[in-house]
């Protein structure tokens, strides 16, 4: 392929990816209540967004939910990864590792139905916390995925053995060596979990209790009356937020490598 053709392909590739976002971005400034024709520039949708208490309330719920889910998923993910990575062989390790990845494979709709019937059968009332637990569950494979890889690398580097050799107990080794060096992966996993929870619709649709309205649910209900530019404005805000989060993630995962600076391979 010639250079020129490659460049044209590149342009189309990025347009394909980002044109919808550009349209959305542009129409968030459109001075019209329908998303069809351009009627001039305005900030009014952003202003209205700031006064839409229902929407802001949904945003707050989603943020709280995502933080809770990310915290739980990271903590449980760290524990599970530690066992999977540190202990060389135990009966059924592969089985357990596979089991942790199951939520990735199961269609979310099945997950949602399953959770709903579980909560119903167990007579657990649907609240913010049942939703948070459900989100932590679907986010768990992501945190385990990132943390486990790092811990395996750490194990190969013999750093934990070195710490114990120098007199550190298992607990001291965990605090002084494992945790600081696994930290970037924990942060990365938490950010992923946050995103998974924040954008989740299907599971939330099933298990959100009465009165718990997350952002995706709220947007969906607003869509019933047509897409207003207010949603575009909200999307732009979220996009900026996501870009910041992504930048943060890049920063933390570009933390020091374990292998390369610990000595020759």
């Amino acid at each position: 392929m010639s250079r020129r053709a490659l460049r044209i392909y590149g342009v189309f590739f990025y347009l394909f990816l980002y044109f919808p976002l550009l349209v959305m971005f542009a129409f968030s400034f459109n001075n019209a209540s329908r998303n069809v024709v351009w009627r001039g520039f305005t900030f009014k949708w952003y202003a209205r967004l700031l006064h839409d208490t229902e929407l802001l309330w949904a945003l707050a719920t989603s943020l709280k939910l995502a933080v809770a889910a990310a915290a739980v998923a990271s903590f449980l993910g760290l524990l599970a990864s530690y066992v999977l990575a540190r202990h060389r062989r135990f009966r059924g390790r592969g089985f357990y590792a596979g089991l942790f990845n199951l939520p990735l494979m199961i269609p979310e709709i099945v997950m949602g139905v399953g959770l709903l019937s579980f909560f119903a059968k167990a007579r657990i009332p649907l609240t913010f916390w049942t939703l948070a637990a459900s989100h932590a569950l679907i986010a768990l494979p992501y945190t385990i995925g990132t943390i486990r890889g790092r811990l395996l690398l750490l194990k190969d580097s013999r750093l934990e053995e070195a710490a114990m050799d120098l007199g550190a107990t298992e607990w001291a080794t965990f605090l002084k060596v494992t945790l600081p060096l696994a930290w970037p992966s924990i942060v990365a996993g938490a950010l992923l979990a946050f995103t998974v929870s924040f954008e989740d619709f299907v599971t939330t649709f099933f298990v959100a209790g009465v009165g718990v309205v997350t952002m995706p649910i709220k947007i969906y209900s607003m869509m019933k009356f047509g897409v207003t530019p207010e949603i575009n404005a909200l999307a732009v805000c979220l996009l900026i937020f996501a870009a910041l989060a992504l930048g943060l993630n890049q920063l933390s995962s570009s933390g020091r490598a374990i292998e390369s600076d610990a000595g020759p391979a």
Binding site: R158, L159, E161, A162, D165, L166, A257, A262
Partner: peptide, 17 residues
């Protein structure tokens, strides 16, 4: 290992980065 009065110099050095 942490209850033994023995230290090891590892082949890969295993310095804490």
């Amino acid at each position: 290992p942490y209850r033994r009065d023995i230290h090891t110099v590892f082949q890969s050095y295993a310095l804490f980065p």
